[in-house]
Nucleic acid binder design. Structure first.
Lengths: 230, 230
DNA sequence: GCTCGTTTCAAACAGGTGTTTGAATCATAC
DNA sequence: GTATGATTCAAACACCTGTTTGAAACGAGC
């Protein structure tokens, strides 16, 4: 009604988003029904359609709510770095820290749902559903473009393809680490998740940088792969 | 009926498994209905319950069918390496190549469905559904135990925790790379997927090894001094 | 011919899905 | 007070889900 119409239905919308975020993280999109969401949130079943229009739109809003902030923060960091560098190419580790550091810091925030969201996001990277993938790609396109550029400028002599693939691999390592599923029960013995939220970053970041800086493989002469033990 | 009762219903069972594998990979478990599976496979709706018992059992069989072979192959490789080493600790890169190499070779096989299956498997690592996670963990437990042991022996001086985490990170990088979703549309410009199936391995393996061997982070505030891994 | 165990089939079952509806409630402005 | 728009609510909608059923078809062995 008034110019500042953000405050309409102060509770319901936010409570739906919070509950949906948690349940989507725990059970996935398809396995989470609107009845479960609204039931857990203590609101009427119809209210999610009233406030968001559809389940699909709700899913998108769950992401948009935090993703725009996350990516804006990433760009702010990159802007700052490039401003300070005055045109000189950035050191790769600074770029990596800008991109993944923001995410890891958000993942370390267990108070305001950042942790929950990042686990959800990590899972969603491998989400098959088409509209989710398209939505994510669009939401990320600007950030990805900028960081790609920066990395390519920071690593002259390394083939562009190779850089993109390693960015890809870094993303995979992070998303799996953050999503925290640990399908193979590898690190369940190490508790640490709750105690020190920065611990994951201190473990992951060296791994990412080590992978990024690894020597390139021998360009396999032609196509047929000879069995070689090196 | 006879002692070799494997050949019963030669078509139906296998066709269901093939179609289910593909559809699960493309759309996920929940989003793939039995009617879609049986329809696409050209068999009756009831036949999946007849042959497998339930959808859940079908999912497990889709995995078991290839996973037992995959993990047996991994153990065979590791056995061979340890036999040749005669009790001496293995070089880390050999262990990594044994574990991930088998998977990458299977992912490179587009003829017999290995590619499809590995993409499905990569996705399933982050699958929220509980029974799938439990099933995977059990199916992997022996292999994981052996490779953990080998890596710990191969990297004396590196804290056990750190090794497990890096194994975890490597798994994430591989599963994301293999599942091939590329949620952020990072490497879509590089085609290469079809042309040379070994290319992914040649790109991924150096990344994994670089990550594994990366220097450990400075222990924040307290604890021991920094060391180099491997 | 017949029998018997296996496999297929169409139909139905019980319950869950996202969404819509139209009346009831609430809050605010006049 | 009443009028107005925003929100909530219980009920129903049409459709899809995995599973079951009992009869039909098949394929050997005799």
């Amino acid at each position: 009604m008034s110019a500042t119409d953000q405050k309409q239905s102060p509770d319901t919308r936010e409570r739906i988003l919070d509950v949906a975020e948690l349940l989507f993280m725990q059970h996935g999109f398809e396995a989470t029904s609107m009845r479960t969401i609204t039931g857990r949130a203590g609101v009427n079943l119809a209210s999610v359609n009233y406030h968001f229009g559809s389940k699909e739109a709700l899913i998108q809003e769950v992401f948009r709510r935090r993703l725009t902030w996350l990516n804006r923060e990433r760009l702010r960091e990159l802007d700052r770095l490039e401003r300070e560098a005055k045109g000189a190419p950035l050191k790769p580790h600074l770029i990596v820290e800008a991109f993944f550091g923001v995410a890891l810091r958000m993942a370390a925030d267990t108070e305001h749902g950042g942790h929950t969201f990042m686990r959800l996001l990590g899972r969603t990277y491998t989400e098959p559903t088409e509209f989710v993938r398209n939505f994510l790609a669009e939401e990320y396109s600007a950030v990805v473009e900028r960081f790609k550029e920066a990395l390519i400028k920071a690593l002259p002599g390394v083939p562009r393809e190779e850089i993109l693939w390693r960015f890809h691999f870094m993303l995979g390592a992070m998303s799996y680490a953050i999503s925290g599923t640990d399908a193979l029960k590898l690190v369940t013995e190490c508790e640490l998740d709750e105690k020190d939220p920065g611990a994951l970053a201190r473990r992951l970041m060296p791994f990412l940088l080590g992978g990024l800086r690894a020597p390139l493989a021998e360009p396999q002469a032609k196509q047929k792969n000879a069995r070689k033990a090196a």
